[in-house]
């Protein structure tokens, strides 16, 4: 078994010790564990973000495997548990908290009470709007990175990260919805997830910068 120190040293070798320690101390919530959230959590965990809070009420379904980070052996498992299993397979020392519940206006405040960094990674526009409005209204000091528009294929460079306020960033092309494009595919969803994870790492390491 690889020790925690060996993993920390390997990460420090890649990131420098100072960066590694900052990432290890950070805690991020990922709300929605589909094509976006499963890849965001994977990227943050690979970087060594020490504490992750995984939230989703769904179970792994065969129709998810075209773009989400799950396996056939995990069909039927609650997504937070299945994702945790995978994340721990490459870093068993991560602190991972799971909540297999549907986020609503009533429980969001309690669920996110200890999470300074929040990723909105849902698939339904109404749920995206609910979480975004809730966090911006009730937790204005937290950082929120959300997504809208990553359906279809091609047009990689239309996926962008846009500053909405100093604490809220939006990734995606803001246009391509499943409603109009009819498909969701791994490459474009992963591009958007990478934008979100990359912004989150920047916020953890440097805070929100103006402009």
């Amino acid at each position: 078994m690889v020790s925690e120190k060996e993993i920390d040293d390997a990460l420090a070798l890649r990131h420098t010790r100072q960066v590694q320690e900052k990432l290890k101390k950070a805690k991020a919530a990922v709300c929605g564990l589909g094509g976006l959230g499963s890849h965001i959590a994977g990227a943050l965990a690979r970087c060594g973000v020490g504490s992750l809070h995984l939230i989703d009420d769904d179970r792994v379904d065969l129709s998810n495997l075209n773009r989400q980070q799950y396996t056939l052996a995990q069909l039927g498992m609650p997504k937070p548990e299945a994702l945790k299993e995978w994340l721990l397979s490459f870093n068993p020392y991560l602190k991972i908290c799971t909540d297999c519940v549907r986020m609503t206006e009533e429980n969001t405040g309690e669920l996110l009470k200890d999470d300074p960094y929040i990723c909105e990674a849902f698939d339904q526009p109404e749920t995206k709007a609910m979480l975004t409005n809730y966090v911006l209204e009730h937790f204005p000091e937290r950082y929120l990175v959300g997504a809208s528009g990553m359906a279809g294929f091609g047009e990689s460079n239309r996926i962008h990260t846009r500053r909405i306020t100093s604490h809220y960033y939006l990734c995606g092309d803001e246009i391509s919805g499943i409603e109009t494009c009819g498909s969701l595919m791994a490459p474009r969803v992963m591009l958007c997830a990478a934008h979100q994870a990359n912004k989150m790492i920047e916020l953890i390491l440097q805070g929100g910068r103006e402009s």
């Binding site: 929605g32 589909g34 094509g35 976006l36 959230g37 990674a121 849902f122 698939d123 339904q124 526009p125 109404e126 995206k128 709007a129 975004t132 409005n133 911006l136 209204e137 204005p140 959300g146 997504a147 809208s148 528009g149 990553m150 359906a151 909405i164 306020t165 939006l170 803001e174 246009i175 391509s176 919805g177 499943i178 409603e179 109009t180 494009c181 969701l184 969803v189």
Partner: peptide
């Protein structure tokens, strides 16, 4: 943020800078 309950009472004034994020489905 403009709370959703205040959309009706929020009057738009000269000089206001508004960002409207309109979410589409998929994730």
């Amino acid at each position: 943020i403009v709370p959703r309950s205040r959309y009706a009472e929020k009057i738009l004034r000269d000089g206001d800078v508004l960002e409207i994020v309109s979410f589409v489905g998929g994730g």
